[in-house]
């Protein structure tokens, strides 16, 4: 199945709820009035778009409706799609991972699916012909390294791990040395889940990033925040605080196959200006794919 088909497939429910609701709103109204906007506000907020972004979208919509003298509720739908697509498309440039080795550090709060995503990201880069090495720097959660080990076996790539409770920076240091010796193309670092408001844990993360920068000052680096798509407005604070301490380059959105909404993406694209790199739409090893904003926006409304 192509990525597009898969994404559409994974999003069937999202798409259905989202656009069916929007469609029903449009067909229920014969003219464009305040009541229609109120209905739209409700739909957007219920999709986790967030209050601020919803206001922004609706202001834009009102503006365009006025300027173009749109009177048919049906036409409004297309304008709405345009506005949302524009927000999503604005951050789509990509980081190149060309140096040997290059590094991806994966961070996020607990339970968003970091380890699983890493397994899938490793599989993706391996399919591009890259030699991948995993660093099990989640030394805190019980059996996290075992879980990553199983993924390494599935994907068939190298892994560097220490014992539970070891210093995560030391794991990363060893992984980078191993990558240099073995000539790996890409090191992907797993890190322990941590809530962004825990200062000490965020300091630990900064130390990991420092270690990478010191050992590989000229390497291409990507620091990815994994976000659970069922997360509400807290996703924005998460992105903000993780960005402050690690300098994020992109986002991975997981569990998009489960939630009926996808709105958090729109809110995030609007407020954090961080590009979404990958989307998780299922449990299989190839159910994580690069994010294409245009396709995503289209898939939502088709």
């Amino acid at each position: 199945m192509s990525f597009f088909a898969k994404l559409k497939n994974g999003l069937t429910k999202t798409k259905k709820e989202f656009s069916e609701k929007i469609n029903s709103v449009f067909s229920a109204f014969v003219k464009v009035d305040e009541e229609l906007f109120e209905e739209l506000e409700e739909i957007l907020i219920m999709s986790d778009v967030g209050f601020e972004t919803t206001e922004y979208i609706l202001d834009e919509l009102r503006d365009k409706v006025k300027k173009s003298r749109i009177e048919e509720p049906d036409e409004i739908k297309n304008v709405l799609i345009d506005i949302i697509s524009e927000i999503l498309i604005q951050n789509s440039e990509n980081v190149q991972l060309n140096t040997k080795p290059s590094v991806i550090i994966v961070v996020g709060v607990n339970g968003v699916g970091k380890t699983t995503s890493i397994g899938k990201i490793a599989s993706y880069y391996k399919s591009l012909g890259k030699n991948v090495l995993l660093a099990a720097a989640d030394t805190f959660r019980a059996a996290a390294a075992e879980q990553l080990q199983i993924w390494a076996e599935r994907v068939d790539c190298d892994i560097v791990r220490h014992n539970e409770g070891a210093d995560p920076s030391a794991v990363v240091f060893d992984a980078i040395s191993a990558a240099k010796n073995r000539g790996s193309d890409l090191v992907i670092c797993d890190t322990a889940g941590r809530l962004h408001n825990k200062k000490n844990l965020m300091n630990e993360l900064e130390k990991i990033v420092r270690t990478v920068n010191r050992e590989l000052p000229d390497a291409d680096k990507e620091i990815l925040l994994v976000l659970d798509a069922t997360t509400g407005q807290n996703a924005i604070t998460q992105a903000k605080l993780f960005d402050e301490s690690t300098g994020l380059t992109g986002l991975v959105l997981t569990k998009l196959d489960g939630t009926a909404k996808g709105g958090v993406i729109i809110g995030l694209a609007n407020s954090q200006k961080l590009p979404v790199r990958f989307v998780g739409v299922g449990e299989q090893i190839d159910d994580l794919q690069p994010f294409n904003p245009e396709e995503f926006a289209k898939a939502l409304f088709e």
């Binding site: 907020i45 219920m46 999709s47 986790d48 709060v109 339970g111 659970d228 069922t230 997360t231 509400g232 407005q233 807290n234 996703a235 939630t259 009926a260 909404k261 958090v264």
Partner: peptide, 12 residues
């Protein structure tokens, strides 16, 4: 349930 869950919490 994760306390960070958004609007979908109700559906879940």
């Amino acid at each position: 349930l994760d306390a960070m869950t958004g609007q979908d919490a109700v559906n879940v």
